[in-house]
């Protein structure tokens, strides 16, 4: 097995006349949390859907755990777990039933025990037998992420896990994601929030106008830009400034 969990090369995708991905390249190492940072409509969900075998790329290659998404989609699906942009929980079922459903679909031998363990871990034991449509946004998202942990997929996609959540719930979800790191699971996280990428990710890729315009750890991204001098005080650029600097430069180059 290679050390690469996700490999994307020259990925292109258009919807009718709009070119969304114009040659995207990035690689995610096994066990790392990788953030794909981009504004609304940048194409983050499109990339996640291609990697989850829900969408066919027009050109380029995408591999998950060494399996090509077009040639071996069922092996890809056996390696991944998708947490989509909107919490995909079944409101008519209880939290516990949602987890048991996924466990059974993943051929878990002890679905009830798996469900109970995850409910405990995500602090949902108290509401386990309540229908999921009575959950708050943060609770639904935690259940959603818990559902993605059933079956121990090697790669987990978290598509904008905190968009639409209030700040308190966002902290709740961040805590959950942080707890996942170091477990050996690879996580591809997409976000519109620079702060979220800073908080959670080992490495960050910035997706802008259909291409990855920068990749690296937060420090690497910071180092590749000279510190901004304001008067005599040296200030490290924040990710936001780096982002704006790159985006601004592109605009000028064009």
């Amino acid at each position: 097995m290679t050390n690469t969990a996700i490999g994307v090369k020259d990925l292109r995708k258009s919807f009718k006349s709009t070119e969304v991905l114009k040659g995207v390249d990035f690689a995610v190492k096994r066990g790392e949390i990788f953030a794909l940072l981009g504004s609304n409509g940048a194409g983050k969900t499109t990339i996640v859907n291609i990697l989850a075998t829900l969408l066919k790329p027009d050109e380029g290659t995408a591999e998950v755990c060494g399996f090509d998404v077009l040639r071996e989609p069922s092996k890809v699906r056996a390696s991944i777990s998708l947490t989509g942009q909107f919490a995909a929980v079944d409101g008519m079922l209880t939290g516990r039933e949602n987890l048991i459903l996924i466990a059974k679909l993943r051929d878990d031998k002890k679905p009830a025990e798996t469900a109970d363990a995850l409910l405990e871990r995500f602090g949902l034991t108290g509401v386990a037998n309540r229908r999921a449509d009575t959950y708050s946004g943060g609770m639904a998202r935690r259940l959603d992420i818990a559902m993605s942990l059933v079956g121990h997929a090697a790669v987990i996609f978290l598509d904008e896990p905190t968009t639409g959540l209030d700040p308190e719930m966002r902290l709740e979800v961040w805590k959950t994601v942080k707890e996942l790191s170091g477990s050996g699971t690879t996580i591809l996280l997409t976000t519109q929030y620079l702060e979220e990428a800073e908080q959670l990710a080992d490495r960050i890729a910035i997706l802008h106008e259909g291409k990855i315009i920068a990749t690296g750890t937060l420090d690497e991204l910071k180092k590749s830009f000279p510190p901004i001098r304001v008067e005599y005080i040296e200030k490290q650029p924040t990710l936001e400034e780096i982002f704006l600097a790159i985006v601004g430069k592109k605009e000028i180059v064009k």
Binding site: L54, R77, D90
Partner: peptide
């Protein structure tokens, strides 16, 4: 619409 179908289709079933 709720994304449940996408989750199901991304499972190894």
């Amino acid at each position: 619409q709720k994304g449940i179908f996408a989750r199901l289709r991304s499972l190894p079933i």
